[in-house]
Amino acid sequence: MMTSPILTARKLVKTYTQRSGKFGLGSHSFRALDEVSISLSAGSTLAVVGESGSGKSTLARCLLQLLPLDSGEVLFEGRNLATLSSAALRQERRNLQMVFQDPFASLNPRMKIGEIVAEGLLIHGMGNADERRERVLQMLKRVGLQEADMQKYPHQFSGGQRQRIGIARALVLQPKVVVCDEPVSALDVSIQAQILLLLKDLQQEMALSYVFISHDLRVVRHIADEVVVMHQGKVVEQGAVEAIYAAPQQAYTQNLLNSIPGRRAVAA
């Protein structure tokens, strides 16, 4: 396995302020990310697991600078993303893409599939209209869709197909790092395996590095090389996936792994 880190996060802190009390006049803040440091090796998959409220989606958004950080730095190929100008950051975003959780909410219902997938190319000024069309078509075919689908709208597709469109949209720019925020949690188990295999194949073909956010520990076991376990904004444990699943060191990780349904029956 390759070892040079492509994306590194150092001591990320993100605080949310909540209004509380009578008429929301009071406020209290809590740390969604509390000195979180992670490192993603080129060509590998780093899974971030945790329960709801553990800060894993906040981490995903902070890594891509979609949310401002309170402190800490994100280094992509050695450059600190936070210090880049907005134009330079937009340039870098070509290399940093995201696949969202909800395939029903993350596609604009009024845009055709061809337009949705081509939008990134348009924004980054890549190619002329014909070249863009060709690249979109190649990408859609690669994820298992057809040429005729370019003229369709999102509601004409099933959940699994929509997730394929989301993947095509992220990958058409040929990024280096893709953050997948629960990409299969809204899908049936039969579709889940297809999408996971597609993600794995594409990783090989395009030399992608994935940050894979998930709460499903069975899925993570299959797709990840490294795992980061988060709890209440802190990293509880991190390491190679085999090592953590075989011998979790922290009580929280042990509890999490013991809660996987079906384990009891397997062990018995």
């Binding site: 188990v189 039969s190 579709i191 889940q192 395996a193 295999l197 499903d216 069975r218 996936v241």
Partner: peptide, 19 residues
């Protein structure tokens, strides 16, 4: 059989199969 085959297991021993 097909449905059971595409369920990922927690030990990662089973190869992932599409339905």
């Amino acid at each position: 059989k097909a449905l059971l085959a595409c369920v990922p297991d927690a030990d990662g021993k089973k190869p992932l199969l599409p339905i």
